[in-house]
Amino acid sequence: MDLPVLIKEAKQGSAAAQKCIFDQLADKMLMVCRRYVKNQEDAEELLLDGFYKFFKGLPAFNYQGEAALYTWLKRIMINECLMFLRKKQAFVIVSETVAETIPLEEEALNNLSATDIFNLIVQLPAGYRTVFNLHAIEGMNHGEIASLLGISEGTSKSQLSKARSLLQKMLLQKNITYVKRSTQ
């Protein structure tokens, strides 16, 4: 069934339509949650919280295409994750001094598979990971990140810089291992 039809029926409270939407989008949304929250069980719980809010707010939602729906649902999930991290006080603010911006080689990431990129991101500490996700993936600027996380812009920049340097290190290690493997 088409997504617009499903949305229309789900707005009217059809449980079958709601289940179809859930089945279609749950996997992607779980991966979004996993990018912010490392623990699988926590991520699943946040996914359910997010979908609960999504279905609750669906009658007021004006469907303007699949992309808009996806963006809205993703935003709900990210907010849930940020709330969870704030509650757990998972943000490790290392320093507020603006570190040098280390350019991450985009080509290096482009050469990696989606799973590898995901595994690299998940290995980052919570503070770095959150800022990196919001800036590099969601495309937010530092002002937006700062207001969203309740930190200064400088801290946001610093966290991103450290995240990038850590990713560089990890990529380097990965390359080394690839080299090692290839030589063996």
Binding site: R35, L109, T115, I137
Partner: peptide, 15 residues
């Protein structure tokens, strides 16, 4: 504009 971002968004499950 990054390719890796769209690929990451399309990821359905972790290996």
């Amino acid at each position: 504009n990054k390719d890796w971002v769209s690929r990451l968004d399309g990821l359905n499950h972790a290996a």
